[in-house]
Write a protein that binds this DNA or RNA. Structure first.
Lengths: 148, 148
DNA sequence: ACCAGTAGTTATATATCATAACCGTATCCC
DNA sequence: GGGATACGGTTATGATATATAACTACTGGT
């Protein structure tokens, strides 16, 4: 990343730690993700939010938050940005006037469509490293860590 | 996390994405890590830095940065904090007066020792979810994602 | 009509991650 | 040996992520 400090350091037990390996893997994949989707300029969380809204037109903010593990307070600026960019909108709730119903705009649909194409390339790159079998094993193993 | 928005949302293709699964798994494990080590009050990065210094007494900052994927600029406040807490020290470099040689203090050694005990419990919890075989598979698969 | 709870917002603090510019020192090389 | 160049570390700064508490507006039950 910088400097040619290529004297190999001893990492001790770190490489044997699941948490450490997860951290490093995630740092690496996020970087790749951002690079792969830079044409549509979407970060992983934004991509996930758009996807959930698209799959569930009219959802409430708190539902998206619960589904993705985002705090409702942090969701506000996140959605503001998507709205500012014309990708998603808050519509007034019909039954419950406290809540807003989230929808993608036509442009949001288009951008998400394009993002998916780019994401597919990125995902294929990961699958290439893992192999088909490895990929499904990984998904299964990570799933065991997620369930709280 | 909040609200009883337990209407199951459709997540679309998200659960099939390696990147998304990694993200969720890491969110979950970091939370567990912080909880497990709250008695010694170490975050994952601090724990990793102390470990590397301990394994390589006298390392330079940039070496630790390269080994752990930390930007040198961000390493400064990180180490400042460890030094402020009396866990690590910068000693003047002997051969090269630009660099500082990093060492753990006696207290740093003690805290790291204690941290490792706590970390072992946390790691065992993860291993319990994965199984011994699953754990080593996971480490292997994550390793394939890390090599850039 | 009251009141407890919910949806969303605001304000705020901390941690994380990235870039660029800078200082002092070391190295290279003529 | 002296000047260009590179390196180690620091500072400053900005963007992003994450967490908590308090507030407004509204809901639903009794």
């Amino acid at each position: 990343m910088q400097g040619s400090n290529r004297r190999k350091l001893r990492l001790g037990p770190l490489p044997e730690y699941v948490g450490y390996a997860l951290r490093r893997a995630q740092m690496s994949t996020v970087t790749q993700f951002v690079g792969a989707l830079k044409d549509v300029d979407l970060r992983p969380t934004q991509f996930a939010v758009l996807t959930v809204i698209r799959e569930n037109p009219g959802v409430r903010q708190s539902e998206v938050c619960a589904a993705l593990g985002i705090k409702k307070a942090n969701f506000v600026p996140l959605l503001n940005e998507l709205q500012r960019r014309g990708l998603a909108v808050r519509r007034a709730g019909v039954a419950d006037r406290r809540s807003s119903a989230l929808h993608l705009t036509a442009q949001g649909e288009a951008v998400l469509q394009r993002a998916r194409t780019l994401h597919d390339v990125y995902e294929a790159g990961l699958a290439g490293r893992l192999g088909m079998r490895g990929r499904s094993q990984l998904l299964s193993l990570l799933g065991r860590l997620i369930e709280s």
